[in-house]
């Protein structure tokens, strides 16, 4: 049992992290073309319009909650004079609502994927692997949140969070995790599976968040010479900035002309 615990909570996280980082780098380098949401909006948009925002917004809130819960130590909230009960109530209200939204959204999305023939056919094997894992992660997390908050017997901020932070100190606190309730352990394991699947599935689209859009000029100009090599060792491919930045008083453009006579 001890060896299993060390393997699961002391070794596996690092393997997953390695796979996640190296896999993402590999995917970015060799399969940039494949990084897309593979949207199925074209096949079915009615359910998607409701379920997709529900799932994604819920998930973003859940991720934010994880950052607060895992990274911020309990001593900090105590110093900020936030009582434990208020923290728990907030976690239950916001986290529970967001989790419910994400689970509901995922349920509709999976149902849509299975029941809409065109969407089902356009699904890939990676989707079939991904959705069950995602469902397990979300449901286990939601159960842990709802059950844990009600009974109040397990404080994950003194267990799971300590383990999580110890991972990055390269001194994994295995007992902190192995003492956690089963739902937390399932949630964590499935979460690691999710990160392992990440580079090889559509989850890669999370990296496509359009942060650059906030700062870039509206119209992107690029020179013919600065094309992006799909192969290894390219590295160039920056755009050349706006026309104003490029400072070209005259650029050339083709035009084409249809003419017809009666």
């Amino acid at each position: 049992m001890k060896h299993l615990n060390i393997t699961l909570w002391g070794v596996l996280p690092y393997l997953v992290l390695l796979l996640f980082v190296a896999g993402s780098a590999w995917r970015y380098r060799y399969d940039r073309f494949g990084i897309t949401t593979r949207s199925s909006q074209l096949h079915e948009s009615r359910l998607l319009r409701v379920a997709s925002p529900l799932f994604h917004v819920g998930l973003l809130l859940v991720v934010g909650g994880h950052v607060i819960g895992l990274v911020v130590p309990e001593s900090l909230t105590e110093r900020l004079m936030i009582p434990e009960s208020a923290y728990r109530a907030n976690a239950l209200a916001v986290g529970g609502t967001a989790g419910l939204a994400a689970v509901a959204g995922l349920a509709v999305l999976v149902w849509r994927r299975l029941r809409t023939r065109a969407v089902r056919i356009s699904s890939r094997p990676s989707d079939r692997a991904l959705y069950p894992v995602l469902a397990v992660v979300l449901v286990a997390g939601l159960v842990a949140t709802l059950a844990g908050s009600r009974s109040g017997d397990y404080d994950y901020r003194l267990g799971v969070s300590v383990w999580f932070r110890s991972l990055f100190a390269l001194d994994p606190d295995v007992t902190a995790m192995s003492d956690a309730p089963l739902t937390f352990q399932i949630h964590t394991l499935a979460g690691m599976a999710l990160f392992a699947l990440w580079p090889f599935s559509r989850l890669m689209h999370a990296f496509a968040a359009p942060v650059g859009y906030l700062v870039r000029p509206y119209v992107v100009y690029r020179s013919r010479g600065s094309r992006v090599d799909p192969g290894p060792g390219s590295g160039n491919g920056g755009r050349s900035g706006s026309a104003r930045a490029a400072g070209r008083p005259a650029a050339a453009s083709h035009a084409f002309d249809g003419q017809r006579r009666g």
Partner: peptide
């Protein structure tokens, strides 16, 4: 081009 969140669509400087 302006609508593309990823900046994938571009106008070529040389020939437009």
């Amino acid at each position: 081009v302006a609508a593309c969140p990823s900046g994938a669509i571009y106008k070529r400087i040389e020939d437009g």
